[in-house]
Design a protein around this nucleic acid. Structure first.
Lengths: 247, 247
DNA sequence: CGTGTTATTGACCAACATCAAACTTAGTGG
DNA sequence: CCACTAAGTTTGATGTTGGTCAATAACACG
C-alpha cells in the first residue's frame, strides 16, 4: 500500500484507470505526480476544437463533456459523452491535428496535462502505457456500439442502450447513487448523439416512462427496472471492458 | 537505406505503416523479421469471432475483410472494411476478449503474428509502438466518421462518402489503379455498413451512376468525377491522418 | 416577473424499409 | 458448350419510422 496522499483530482484519474486496467501501487503514485493545469470551462464552449494541434491532454474533473463534429449540412453528430476521470483527447498524443471538437455540455473543471509529462510516463511505466492505450481502445469499442445503435436499433432501443451505457460508466467511477444519476444533457443533445430529432427523443423517453422502465425529472434519471432497461436496449456491458462487473 | 530484402508479405505491412506514421530504415528491417503464420481463409467465414481471446493479431495480405456484430434482432452492423496491409484486430493486444467478429468478405490470405512477437517490438522500437497505437487511433477516427454518416447524412451522401474512403485507403497502399478499383462487396454488405437496406443501396448507386459521378459493373468501381463524388459525400480525408495527401 | 431555453404536443410529410417478383451473373456438372 | 442453380441485382408497390414545422407549456435565471 502506498503512503503517499493523492489529490482528489488525481484520484479521479486513478479511479478511472483502475476501473479499466491493472495498475500497481507505484503506478498510482507516479500518476499522482502528473502536473495538472486546472481550468474552469463555461457551458457550451469548446475545450479543444477541430483543427487544433494540442500539446496537452484534457482530464475531466467535473461536468459533462462530449466530442462532436458539425457536418456540411450544419447538423451536429455527437460521438461520445465523457464523465469525470476521462481523458477524451488522449489520442492527441499520437494524432497531431484534431479531427473533431471536445465541448463542455455543462460548466466544467478540467485539468490540462502536458503531452511531455504523459510521454515520460509512457516510457517509464509500461502498465500506465498499457492503461492509456487500452482506454483509447475502449473508446473505439464504444464508437462501434454507437454505430450499431444508430445503424440498426430502433429509436426506443438506442435510447435505452445509451442510458444503460452512461449509467454503467458513472457507476464504474462512483458517480451514480444507487439507481439514480444526474444526466445534465438536453434532449437535443441526446438526439445529436443518436442521429434522431429532439422531438422523437422526447416521445421515446415518454414511452420509457409510461412503461415504468425509467423515471426522470429535471436532469435526474431513476432506473426503475434495470433488467427491462437492459433488455429494451439490447445492452451487454462486455464492450466497456471494465475490470469489475458493475451489475 | 536498408540492404535487407523484405518479403512481399512484410512489405504490405510496412507500406501501410509508412502511409500513416514515420518509421526509420531500421524499424522497417525489424518489422520484416516478424514471424508470419500464413493461412488461407474461405469467403464468408470468420477469422476471429466475438468472444475469442486471441493470442495473435491478424495481418491481411489479400482480400477484403470486415468487422461486424450481429444484434439481438438478428441484424448485422458492419463497423469497418479492411484492405491488405491492415491489422484489424490489433486491439486484441490490450483487450483480451473480442467484442465483435472479423470476417472474410472474399477468399483471403492472412498472416497471424503472435502477440509476444509484437510486444517485443513495442518495447524495443518506440516508433513502431507509436505507429501501432496510431493505427488503432485512426481506426477510431474512421468509426467516428461512419457514425456521422449513419447518424446524420442522407443515404446518397453516406454511400458517396464510403466510396471516397475506401478509394483513398486503397490508393494509400497502392491498390487502386488510377480512378478504378475493385470493390468486392455486395450491396447487402454496403447496407449493413451504412444502416441501410440493400434495396436502397441499389437505388442510390443508380443515382450516382445516372449523375455520372461513378460507374461500376461487376465488382469494379470507376470514379468519373472525383470532385463531385467528394462533394456529394461531404468527404474530407483529414480524419484518415495519412502522411501524404492522396488527392 | 419577464425572458430565453428546454420540453411537450399535434398535424403532416419524407426517407427509407419491406415484400415480392423478375432478371442477371457466376459458377457447376454433365 | 449448355442446362441448372444459387447468389446477387433490379424494379415496383406499399408501409412505417422518425423528421419537420409550429404552437404551447414548463422551467431556470437574473
Amino acid at each position: 500500500m502506498s503512503v503517499i496522499t493523492h489529490s482528489p483530482y488525481h484520484q479521479r484519474l486513478i479511479r478511472k484507470l483502475d476501473a479499466i486496467s491493472v495498475l500497481g501501487a507505484e503506478d498510482r503514485d507516479v500518476l499522482a505526480t502528473l502536473p495538472l493545469n486546472i481550468r474552469s470551462i463555461p457551458e457550451n464552449s469548446d475545450i479543444v476544437s477541430r483543427g487544433d494541434r494540442p500539446s496537452s491532454c484534457c482530464l475531466i474533473l467535473e461536468g459533462f463533456t462530449c466530442r462532436y463534429n458539425i457536418l456540411a449540412s450544419g447538423q451536429r453528430q455527437i460521438f461520445s459523452f465523457h464523465v469525470p476521470g476521462d481523458i477524451p483527447d488522449l489520442q492527441s498524443l499520437h494524432i497531431e491535428v484534431m479531427d473533431h471538437s471536445l465541448g463542455a455540455l455543462t460548466p466544467c473543471r478540467v485539468a490540462f496535462i502536458p503531452h511531455v509529462a504523459i510521454d515520460e510516463l509512457l516510457h517509464t511505466r509500461p502498465r500506465i502505457a498499457r492503461a492509456f492505450w487500452r482506454e483509447t481502445l475502449i473508446d473505439a469499442a464504444i464508437f462501434r456500439e454507437w454505430l450499431a445503435s444508430v445503424g440498426r436499433r430502433t429509436a426506443y432501443q438506442s435510447v435505452a442502450h445509451l442510458i444503460c451505457e452512461i449509467y454503467v460508466q458513472l457507476l464504474a467511477v462512483g458517480l451514480a447513487d444507487g439507481l439514480n444519476f444526474e444526466l445534465p444533457i438536453t434532449q437535443e443533445e441526446l438526439g445529436d448523439a443518436l442521429g434522431l430529432s429532439a422531438v422523437h427523443i422526447n416521445r421515446v423517453l415518454q414511452e420509457l416512462k409510461v412503461a415504468r422502465v425509467i423515471a426522470s425529472n429535471r436532469r435526474q434519471i431513476v432506473i426503475i427496472d434495470w433488467e427491462r432497461l437492459k433488455a429494451a436496449g439490447d445492452f451487454d456491458p462486455g464492450y466497456l471492458h471494465l475490470r469489475h462487473d458493475e451489475l
